[in-house]
Design a protein around this nucleic acid. Structure first.
Lengths: 196, 196
DNA sequence: ATTATCTATAGATCTATAGATAATGC
DNA sequence: ATTATCTATAGATCTATAGATAATGC
């Protein structure tokens, strides 16, 4: 029954891969330790030789999920292209392999401090990525614009996923795509000065 | 032990009030039937004379939570003022009495079809409210702008609540407030024509 | 007689632990 | 000898039901 240390490492990453996917799909409370272990090809009892607690799994699985996001951000040439893919129906329908921040923002509010810390760090990273991708403007307006785009992307996708009406869901994604195609290019403040 | 029909109605609304608050605060899975009943001053056993199932409570409590949102939307003279209050730290720190869409968007994705339907209807109502409040532009650009503002408000507040870092949380709300103060006034398309 | 509410509990589900099993690794 | 994994289960928690109690309402 016992396997080698190398095999244990494989088991460990299988568990993480399953958890990273299912937590994003069903929420942090949506899948249990036993189900994760079963899908990873193991049984419940072994779990606690891999993780100190269920919450430790959540923390590591969240970090694992963010690796997908790292890849996504890297694979696009511009923020505009990234956002277009982000707002796709394909991304909407596959939360399990998509942005972990969007999939779990609601859950993290009720999660442990450790989970929140991992989440927070990744939010900061995404904001840098967005700010970097915004065209024109000084660094402050880029940052502000990044926050608008990121918030709207996360919120819009959350709504598109929660809503029961396919037409509305599509409309949300499409409308954001249109607004983003303008907003991602130049900062508003540089085009027309704010009135104040 | 038995009380009058009128008293039963009072008990019923007490249950709903507690549930509407606690679901928003702790999430749909975050509080149980027994705790809701206890806080409403009753005991578990009576619950099923009031609601057919826990899910029925979720549906009714969501509708109840949206009454607060109706009130919020009514109490402000302009969309800009509404958004300023929406993005406040006070609203961030009191999800139990705040916007139910923001508080529960993540949870609704995993909820029953009945819950999704109630949620979806209220999303439509909010979008109308936003579109109505946008200054200038034709009805199509108002609608698109409304979707941007609403998505960013929901997403930004969700992030501000999930994040572990007070400075970042405040920055998110502040930046959105700044961008909104411009975006809520005039549609981008009417100021500078899109390139494409 | 009906029924609003209560106490008690059945039954399901979930995290975590105990103890057994058998292969690894010194 | 150590340890990776397994089966079994303790203990907590949650939804829903059963049956008792006593006040309402016909």
């Amino acid at each position: 029954m016992r396997r080698s240390k190398a095999d244990k490492a494989i088991t460990h990453s299988k568990i993480l891969a399953v958890a990273a996917k299912r937590f994003r799909e069903r929420g942090i409370a949506g899948i249990g330790v036993a189900d994760v272990m079963k899908e990873a090809g193991s049984s419940v009892g072994g779990f606690y030789k891999h993780f100190g607690s269920r919450d430790d799994l959540v923390v590591e699985a969240l970090a694992e999920a963010f690796k997908d996001l790292d890849g996504l951000e890297r694979d696009f040439e511009s923020l505009s292209e990234y956002l277009e893919a982000f707002l796709s129906e394909s991304h909407r329908d596959k939360p399990g392999t998509g942005c972990g921040i969007t999939a779990l923002a609601g859950d993290v509010r009720h999660a442990s401090s450790s989970v929140k810390t991992v989440f927070t760090q990744r939010v900061k990273q995404s904001l840098s990525y967005y700010a970097n991708g915004v065209k024109g403007g000084d660094s402050e307006s880029k940052r502000t614009r990044a926050i608008l785009l990121f918030s709207a992307a996360v919120g819009g996708m959350s709504l598109a996923r929660a809503v029961n009406d396919k037409t509305l869901s599509r409309e949300l994604l499409k409308a954001l795509g249109e607004e983003f195609s303008m907003l991602a290019k130049r900062p508003l403040a540089k085009r027309i000065p704010a009135k104040t």
